[in-house]
Write a protein that binds this DNA or RNA. Structure first.
Length: 171
DNA sequence: GCCAACGTTGGC
DNA sequence: GCCAACGTTGGC
């Protein structure tokens, strides 16, 4: 993909230059990478996502989008902070690294299979909002919300403006 | 293209 | 640590 490519080739991958901020929720296991880790490093490439639905969501992200930072597989699964999308989506470099746990032999540099964005620390919530509490607002959040959907394991999901507002109002 | 087997996620 | 639910793989 060279600089010579005409612009219109790529235009359909982008949303309009001026478009509304979107919202997302991203899960992480705090033992592996927590909100405190993000606070310390400030910006983190969100590598290692190997699920197509989650990947597709990341491919729709753009700088400035809001992220609810969620701790999973831990004592109290909860939303613990907010972050900001800090880059356009780009190929996850770990997919090309044979030494990486996330190496994907079937991915090529010409057609990378996995994408990521950089995620930037925004703030820790004054208190964590536990999944158990979030579930009590299931009706208001709607049945389509993957976090509270039975059996859903989606690690990157869209959040509507209304859901964002509601969830943060619980803080 | 079906589907059994397997691996993973993640709440509990 | 258990296990339900889900996604992926690969034989046929």
């Amino acid at each position: 993909m060279g600089r010579g490519c005409t612009r219109h080739v790529h235009d359909h991958h982008r949303r309009p230059r001026v478009s509304r901020k979107r919202h997302w929720l991203m899960k992480t296991e705090p033992d592996a990478f927590s909100i405190d880790d993000l606070k310390r490093v400030v910006t983190e490439p969100w590598n290692g996502v190997r699920n197509y639905q989650a990947r597709n969501h990341m491919r729709q992200m753009q700088p400035g989008d809001g992220v609810l930072f969620y701790h999973s597989s831990c004592e109290v699964p909860a939303i613990v902070g907010t972050a900001t999308v800090a880059s356009e989506p780009y190929p996850d470099p770990t997919q090309f690294d044979p030494k990486s746990d996330y190496y994907d032999a079937k991915s090529t540099r010409a057609e990378p299979r996995w994408s990521l964005v950089d995620v930037k620390f925004d703030r820790k919530l004054k208190r964590a909002i536990p999944l158990e509490e979030i579930k009590r607002h299931g009706d208001a959040l709607g049945e389509g919300f993957a976090l509270t959907q039975r059996g859903s394991r989606l690690s990157v999901m869209p959040v509507t403006a209304a859901q964002w507002k509601l969830l943060l109002s619980l803080e």
